[in-house]
């Protein structure tokens, strides 16, 4: 990919003040500009930590997709209880090793297989929530920032209310009303409370972009509000939005795990990391079956950590600083 020679055909004659006219403009060939996306992508590629994290995430995704493979290799279904071989004589789960590589849970189920299936829930919720939240937030932020006055006030008030109600509490309340949790509830609540932060950030940016001359130029050309919002303003905001989205994924994963831990997320017997940790706490079980607590926790930790590092990398790729720690 070449930048081309600025001096070559674009040169202007300083004396007469006119430039050369191209002879044959039929289908003039076109030089690709180096877009800001390209530059960001290259910076990201050079960030070793981010690349490693991306690889780890890829592995996790593969594990999630291939979860049934885990089940078939070990011969244990995800919800299959092995009360005889899985539990010891006193009813407590068997430990690590042997037929159960990561041990069993309180019902004799294979922890390894459940962790693999649990990855599906976490990844799904993480990515879907982030996408929905960011979309809603960006659109409303754009509208609030550009369409001004009434729209701004209404959206602003809604944001205030949303940020005042503790989301977890509301989730608990909503689950009570609905009679129990579910994955839809989790995604809904997370998106419902997440969009306001995005909207605020986007709105702030829109307010400053709105005064720039190129927006004035667009208006003087006759562009309507919606065209300006999405074609002129949005490209200047999207970088921030993407960074926020990538940092929102690990937050969503943790939130989902938390909701499941409180029993208002995914319902049993579906495998879910937060759920498993909750079960491990029951009756102090983790004190004798540490693997049941530790392995799902590790899975959560590694996944979240990887997404966080990647998210940091994305942010640095779009907005490089001189003081980055690990180069």
């Amino acid at each position: 990919m070449t930048i081309g020679n600025v001096g070559a055909t674009g040169e202007l004659d300083l004396v007469t003040g006119t430039g050369p006219v191209e002879e044959a403009p039929e289908a003039a060939k076109v030089i690709q500009g180096r877009s800001p996306w390209r530059l960001a992508y290259e910076r990201l590629r050079r960030d070793r930590a981010a690349v490693i994290s991306a690889v780890i995430i890829l592995i996790i995704v593969v594990c999630a997709i291939a979860a049934p493979v885990f089940a078939s290799i070990t011969g244990h279904g995800v919800n299959q209880q092995f009360r005889v071989i899985g539990l010891k004589a006193d009813g407590f789960p068997t430990g690590v090793g042997g037929k159960f590589p990561l041990g069993t849970d309180d019902q004799g189920r294979d922890v390894l297989v459940r962790i693999a299936y649990g990855a599906r829930v976490s990844l799904l919720v993480g990515v879907v929530t982030s996408a929905i939240t960011v979309t809603i937030g960006a659109i409303l932020g754009l509208m609030a920032g550009y369409l001004g006055r009434t729209v701004d006030t209404i959206v602003g008030r809604i944001i205030d209310v949303t940020l005042s109600i503790p989301f977890l509490l509301f989730a608990v309340a909503l689950a009570a009303v609905e009679g129990g949790g579910s994955i839809t509830l989790v995604i809904t609540v997370l998106a419902l409370f997440g969009w306001s932060s995005v909207a605020r950030i986007v709105r702030g940016q829109v307010l400053s972009i709105r005064e720039r001359e190129y927006i004035e130029a667009a208006r003087s050309l006759g562009a309507g509000s919606w065209r300006i919002m999405f074609i002129d303003i949005f490209p200047n905001v999207i970088a921030q939005v993407i960074v926020y989205a990538s940092l929102l994924i690990p937050l969503s994963i943790v939130s989902e795990a938390t909701l499941s831990y409180l029993s208002i997320g995914v319902q049993p017997p579906t495998a879910d990391w937060g759920q498993m940790i909750f079960e491990a706490q029951q009756g102090g079980l983790y004190q004798v079956a540490w693997w049941f607590l530790v392995f799902p926790s590790l899975a959560l930790l590694i996944t979240t950590l990887a997404f966080n590092i990647l998210g940091d990398g994305v942010r640095d790729a779009f907005d490089p600083r001189a003081d980055r720690l690990f180069v």
């Binding site: 690990p250 943790v254 795990a257 938390t258 831990y261 937060g274 940790i277 491990a280 706490q281 983790y286 004190q287 540490w290 607590l293 926790s297 959560l300 930790l301 979240t304 950590l305 966080n308 590092i309 940091d312 720690l325 690990f326």
Partner: peptide
């Protein structure tokens, strides 16, 4: 580097996991 790494580590940990591990 020390603080930043630790921060990243704990930032990625859900509260309840930390609580249970601390208890453990």
């Amino acid at each position: 580097r020390f603080f930043t790494t630790i921060a990243l580590f704990f930032y990625s940990m859900p509260t309840f996991v930390l609580g249970l591990l601390l208890l453990l």
